[in-house]
Amino acid sequence: MSVMSAMSLRRHAAPVLVPASVGPVEERVATLSALRCGAAGTVTGVVADDPAVAQRLVDLGFVPGTPVETVRRAPLRDPVVYRVAGYEIALRKAQADCIRIAPTA
């Protein structure tokens, strides 16, 4: 336990880079930003250039397997409020683009 400091945690924390194109449903792969208002989906993965950003989005609740819903768009279209993990959070398009989802039919 003594070596499990926050430092070692930071150093070894692997970003969750779940390939969005796994499985036979490749044509259904979309990002959160493409989800229209009121629609729901399930997070399939988080992909970002910066692993720390991907890690942060996961820490905010965008965990693979989690249901997510588009609640509201700002008057100028961006940002958008999403409901995930039991709370609401606003993301800009750049961040929503990182979140791969499978839309709920």
Binding site: D49, D50, L57, L60, P79, I89, A90, L91, Q95
Partner: peptide
Amino acid sequence: GPALPFYMEMP
């Protein structure tokens, strides 16, 4: 450093 991602909880 890289731009920080934008996210804002709506309490």
